[in-house]
Design a protein around this nucleic acid. Structure first.
Length: 270
DNA sequence: AACGAAACCTGCGCGC
DNA sequence: TGCGCGCAGGTTTCGT
């Protein structure tokens, strides 16, 4: 479920509930989720207290007493808060039990999510966070343009590349490029400075609005933590194949760009 | 360096 | 009803 707005929504909700809670026990049902020795991870994290919950790009960052736990939701990761008396469901892969008896449960049908644990002193300077580029709001046009002009990839691929710009995923890239009136297959080194400026501005506006509305909920019947986003009502092209473009009424087409399903108005976007 | 395909997983909707 | 295929809000890896 996660691009920046969804992860930010989860972050805010979790922080509300979990601040100052102390972890009493960890139950790991799908060991591959954690990128460390399970026993070490479990020992390390027990008795630490959640001091803050932050985010960088699409990564959630749990600030503990001594370590930072980095969680990436990938395609379908979700969190639920439950009581320790509730039965464990099929797709709940790790459960953090707090001293209060409340539990934080990670649910992930496709098991693509990842969890890293690194010391507070160095977690930002080592993978996975060290590779993550700034978000659109923190990137200046000049440096992004310089980056793009050196490459010969499609603008869609560039915007999906978290080492170039972070936070955007398939939905918000489509919406950003529609708003920018730029075709997703345009090559990055063919874009003008003005166009790059428009793309960054659009990305900002799209993300900001989506965060405001709690993200986008599509194709996910159960929303995590009872959080249901409302940005799906603001989508212009994503998932709109065959529907009229809101600007020119031309039917929206679906194509493949960089292996990803991509929605575009063939008239407006050039 | 760039591209495509495959991998990591599971479930759903569609056409036959 | 059942089966096979394609597809899914992400990212990495591997071969060309």
């Amino acid at each position: 479920m996660p691009e920046l707005p969804e992860v930010e929504t989860v972050r805010r909700t979790l922080k509300e509930v979990l601040m100052s809670k102390t972890i009493k026990r960890v139950s790991l049902f799908y060991p591959k989720l954690v990128q460390h020795d399970p026993q070490w991870f479990s020992n390390q994290i027990c008795h630490q207290t959640i001091r803050d919950i932050k985010r960088k790009g699409k990564h959630l960052i749990f600030i503990l007493d001594h370590d930072a736990m980095l969680i990436h939701l990938r395609m379908e990761g979700k969190f639920f808060i439950k009581d320790d008396s509730c039965p464990i469901l099929k797709h709940e892969h790790i459960v953090f039990t707090f001293e209060s008896g409340q539990e934080l449960r990670y649910h992930d049908v496709r098991k693509f999510g990842t969890i890293h644990l690194h010391a507070l002193e160095n977690y930002e300077s080592i993978p996975p966070l060290s590779k993550i580029a700034p978000e659109p709001k923190d990137i200046d046009v000049q440096s992004f343009y310089q980056l793009l002009v050196k490459k010969q990839i499609t603008i869609k691929q560039a915007l999906l590349d978290q080492t170039l710009i972070s936070g955007l995923g398939n939905i918000y890239v489509d919406e950003t490029l529609f708003k920018s009136r730029i075709h997703p297959t345009r090559k990055t080194n063919q874009l003008s400075y003005e166009e790059v400026k428009i793309i960054l501005k659009s990305a900002n506006e799209v993300l900001q609005k989506a965060v405001e509305l709690g993200g986008t909920t599509i194709r996910s019947y159960t929303s995590s933590l009872g959080v249901t986003g409302r940005f799906q009502n603001q989508l212009h092209v994503h998932m709109k194949k065959g529907e009229p473009c809101p600007i020119c009424q031309t039917p929206i087409i679906k194509m493949k760009v960089g292996g990803r399903g991509t929605y575009v108005c063939p008239e407006c976007q050039t």
